[in-house]
């Protein structure tokens, strides 16, 4: 039998490190001894015990939500039955909402805390509740927009985490295509034929993408906060200005630009500033106040 040199406790035979402080026992095998009578047996002989998966408080909240939902559903069902089928109130709509609401509350309590899993669940539940409400009101109409928006959110906000940033290019391509597709779908939902997508939305989108690409490439070389802010304002001005130009063409207006002229002036000044900062060292130092290395 050995003693722990750090804790001073006597260790049971066969112990190779102190259970209290993890200090390794440095002694001969004779002193350490052989493990004969241990406190408990080997885990190899354990019969499998069922284990509850959630802890007490979480289990309490899950049970409470289920209990309250059950009460709500029973009350709604009784109400629906009592007032009869001729009454406009339908309990099924409310019961459906209770089910989806329970899903909303239970998701973080039941599912593992992973962004992709939780956000995907919430997207699905939101889709379900919106489609359900729209269908109840009378056929699918506005829910098409919300469905497209939620799918777009998932593609932009969740999909990159699904592929875990391993394929950055794939993520960017999916985002770019999905935004274009989203705009296209909005145009289809708007009317019987494709109208404003090709003459207005697509040019604006392409110009904005090109600006964003230039901005992204510039950012990789390093930009100050003021440059980033100004760059973003510039992109916004160009996008809105381009929107004005293409919209005027779309409605066959004689003017080349209308209200966006001021925006183009601001965009020009910002572009001048950014080009100067990017190309002329003295200007860059003046604005950034950095010591030249």
């Amino acid at each position: 039998m050995a003693y722990c040199v750090k804790c001073g406790v006597k260790l049971e035979p066969g112990t190779i490190s102190c259970p209290l402080c993890k200090t390794e026992v440095r002694a001969s095998e004779e002193i350490i001894g052989k493990s004969t009578k241990t406190l408990f047996g080997s885990s190899h002989h354990d019969h499998r015990e069922e284990q509850p998966l959630v802890d007490m408080r979480r289990k309490g909240f899950i049970e409470l939500i289920l209990a309250l939902a059950t009460i709500a559903i029973i009350i709604l069902a009784i109400t629906g039955w009592a007032i009869g089928p001729e009454h406009p109130f339908s309990p099924w709509f409310s019961i459906g909402c209770v089910f989806i609401g329970v899903g909303f509350i239970l998701a973080p309590l039941v599912l593992p805390s992973r962004y992709v899993l939780l956000s995907s669940t919430y997207v699905l539940l939101t889709l379900a509740i919106l489609l359900f409400i729209d269908a109840q009101i009378g056929g699918l109409s506005w829910s098409l927009y919300t469905t497209a928006s939620l799918v777009l959110y998932w593609l932009i906000g969740v999909f990159p985490w699904v592929i875990k940033h391993k394929r950055l290019v794939l993520g960017i391509v999916v985002d770019v295509v999905s935004i274009g597709l989203y705009l296209f779908l909005l145009d289809i939902f708007d009317g019987p034929a494709v109208t404003w997508f090709f003459p207005v939305a697509l040019p604006i989108y392409v110009v904005t993408l090109i600006c964003a690409m230039i901005f992204g490439l510039r950012m990789r070389r390093g930009m100050t906060v003021s440059e980033i802010v100004m760059g973003l304002i510039l992109i916004a001005c160009i996008a809105v200005g381009v929107g004005d130009i293409f919209y005027l063409r779309f409605i066959d207006h004689p003017d080349f630009v209308s209200w966006s002229l001021e925006l183009w002036i601001i965009a020009g000044l910002l572009a001048l500033y950014l080009i100067a900062v990017a190309t002329i060292k003295k200007v860059r130092l003046f604005f950034t106040n950095k010591i030249d290395k």
């Binding site: 039998m1 001073g8 406790v9 006597k10 260790l11 049971e12 066969g14 112990t15 190779i16 490190s17 102190c18 259970p19 209290l20 993890k22 350490i32 052989k34 493990s35 241990t38 406190l39 408990f40 047996g41 080997s42 885990s43």
Partner: peptide
């Protein structure tokens, strides 16, 4: 530290030799 002889045993698997 108060002079009591303490002998310990544990089921923590990281402190035992193979049984």
């Amino acid at each position: 530290n108060r002079g009591i002889a303490v002998e310990i045993a544990s089921n923590r698997t990281d402190s035992m030799v193979a049984r």
